[in-house]
Simulated scan of single mutants.
Amino acid sequence: MAGWTTLVQAETLSVGLARPDVVVLDCRFDLADNNAGENAWMQAHVPGARYAHLDRDLSGPLQASKGRHPWPDAAEFRERLGRWGISPQTQVVAYDADSGAFAARAWFLLRALGHEKVAVLDGGWKRWTALGLPVDNKVPVPISAKYHAEFDARRILDADQVAEALQAGELLVDARAPARFRGEEERLDRVAGHVPGAVNRPLTDNLADGRFKSPGQLAEEFRALLHGSPANQLIAMCGSGVTACHHLLAMERAGMPGARLFAPSWSGWISDPARPVATGE
């Protein structure tokens, strides 16, 4: 498999920017201010980076049962890829402010289409600028490309499928902060708590000093969670199916591909008041 497929380091990308097949996506976003990321991109970004807005570009239209950031329609997402000049042969690099929480959503959208050459910039914008690497504020000239692919439906689950998977003994891992998982605080969704049977692993557990842990360390930690089960028995979730993708990226970095996403996540689960809710550990 050629190209960067999980992470790329800032030093490597700074050299690779000259390659004609590289397209960079700036995925910076702030859930408290939906315009903050795009405004930051307009002020300065990695040279040549296109802006990928979480609501507008990396999600579909709002539907209660599909959560706050619905999984997009394949045809609509392919059209966005074409606008960004991304074809199946393109090397894509996504970044956000630092942790990769939003960039991982772009990564998994492409991975679910079967796109191999897509990676997240390790350490994001924070590390890029800390190293003094080039930035600009030029809006890239639109480039048209064609993309033909469908999402792999086996890796994208809804609430009913997750309930069945839990009954079958599969593992549901919630990437939210512990206080939200326990139901002690909730600023984004109308109900606090978690899906009964889920376990909590905050996405920050994938990081050390702002960058992803080594493949070996991640593999050890996820194997401990799985208790001997294969990687495809793990389902990642979060508040709306965005930051859960961080776990899917971390597992692929660890050499454990095949985990799945509960796309509507917590905000979709609670759209039906008949579904059970748990609090505490």
Rank of each mutant, 00 (worst) to 15 (best):
A2K: 11
W4F: 14
T5S: 13
V8P: 01
Q9V: 04
Q9H: 13
Q9A: 13
T12K: 07
L13W: 01
A18E: 14
R19T: 09
V23E: 11
L25Q: 08
L25P: 05
F29A: 02
A32K: 15
G37P: 09
A40S: 10
Q43N: 02
Q43G: 02
V46W: 04
L58T: 03
S65P: 01
R68V: 03
H69C: 06
P70T: 05
W71A: 11
W71L: 15
F77W: 03
R78F: 07
G82D: 13
P88L: 08
Q89Y: 10
T90Y: 07
V92P: 00
Y95W: 10
Y95G: 07
A97T: 06
D98S: 12
A101F: 02
F102E: 02
F102T: 11
A104Y: 00
R105S: 08
L109Q: 14
G114Y: 13
A119M: 02
W128I: 05
W128H: 03
P134T: 10
V135Y: 00
V135D: 00
D136R: 04
D136F: 01
I143E: 14
S144L: 10
H148A: 15
E150P: 03
E150H: 12
F151C: 10
D152Y: 11
A153V: 15
E164R: 14
L172W: 09
V173E: 00
A175D: 00
A179I: 13
G183H: 09
E185T: 15
E186K: 09
L188A: 10
D189E: 14
A192N: 07
G193S: 05
G193W: 06
R201C: 05
P202H: 02
L203P: 00
N206Y: 09
G210D: 04
Q217C: 12
Q217Y: 03
E221N: 12
S229C: 08
S229N: 13
P230W: 15
M237Q: 10
G239A: 05
G241W: 00
T243H: 00
H247C: 03
L249M: 06
L249Y: 03
E252H: 09
A263L: 06
S267M: 08
G268L: 05
D272I: 03
P273I: 03
P276D: 12
V277N: 03
A278D: 04
A278L: 05
E281R: 06
